[in-house]
């Protein structure tokens, strides 16, 4: 018997990186899991690699588009009949720049991908969680949702906003059997970090290796975090024992955030 037997989880993004690790952890705990992403080929490959039979399903969609977020929730319910756990995991930022040079488009895109997607998916999922009086919303925020680094204003701003949304939602549904939390990981060298980190570093006036070194040096462990660290805490929050933890911004950062 797994801790999440019979539960249905949906993870925005989720074909790789943190979302993928959380999906695999939930599958090990017995849940059915829907993952999502823009590229159907990557989705099909992820489902094949996960190899969980009918308990894993891919829904194509762009998390920065409202219709796709709504459809992700709707197709999850259509496929498995319910939704218990929502992981708002899709996120990131492109075209980072210092504020003086920042474009409207870069800010808008970052807010769509990190904040609006969390809002859209949560609103739609709460429509199912509130009547069933059980739910877990887990927002993948960041260390940068608590602190700020130069050159990453769009990311820092949108992750801080996600943390605010987390707190407000937690209080709205606190007596309804639904918890809402944010996980705040330190830097992790995911595929996305490898792909986008170079440009982010450039915006911060440094090389990619220097960016990773900066994050590691701020921590107590003097190394980066790993996707499994985040999946470990996500599993706990999704479990019954997670019922007493809500509105929390949980640091998974090797001792980086000051609070």
């Amino acid at each position: 018997m797994g801790e999440l037997d019979g539960r249905v989880a949906v993870i925005s993004g989720g074909t790789r990186g943190i979302g993928r690790a959380i999906g695999e952890a939930f599958l090990r705990d017995g849940a059915s899991v829907v993952i999502n992403g823009r590229d159907p080929a990557k989705g099909a490959r992820a489902i094949e690699e996960i190899d969980a039979g009918d308990r894993a399903h891919f829904v194509q969609g762009d998390s920065s588009v409202r219709e796709d977020c709504d459809r992700l929730i709707d197709e999850t319910v259509a496929k498995y009949g319910r939704i218990d756990i929502l992981v708002n995991n899709a996120g990131g930022s492109n075209d980072n720049a210092p504020v003086a040079q920042l474009t409207d488009e870069a800010m808008d895109n970052a807010l769509k991908l990190n904040l609006w997607s969390t809002f859209w998916c949560s609103r739609r999922a709460l429509g199912h969680m509130i009547p069933q009086q059980w739910g877990r919303i887990i927002n993948i925020s960041s260390l940068e949702g608590k602190v700020g680094k130069p050159g990453l204003a769009i990311y820092v701003t949108s992750k801080h906003a996600v943390n605010g949304l987390t707190k407000a939602m937690a209080h709205e549904v606190g007596t309804l059997g639904i918890t809402v939390n944010a996980l705040c990981p330190g830097a992790i060298e995911t595929d996305m970090m490898k792909a986008e980190g170079g440009k982010a570093a450039e915006s911060m006036g440094m090389k990619y290796e220097d960016l990773l070194e900066w994050f590691a040096s701020e921590s107590s462990i003097k190394r980066l975090n790993e996707v499994e660290d985040v999946a470990l805490v996500a599993s706990l929050l999704a479990s019954e024992a997670g019922a007493g933890i809500t509105g929390s911004l949980i640091s998974i950062d090797g001792g980086s955030a000051p609070y």
Partner: peptide
């Protein structure tokens, strides 16, 4: 598995 979580003030407070 928690080797990379340290210095954390882990809240278990129902959103207080």
């Amino acid at each position: 598995a928690a080797r990379n979580i340290t210095g954390c003030m882990f809240p278990i407070d129902g959103g207080t």
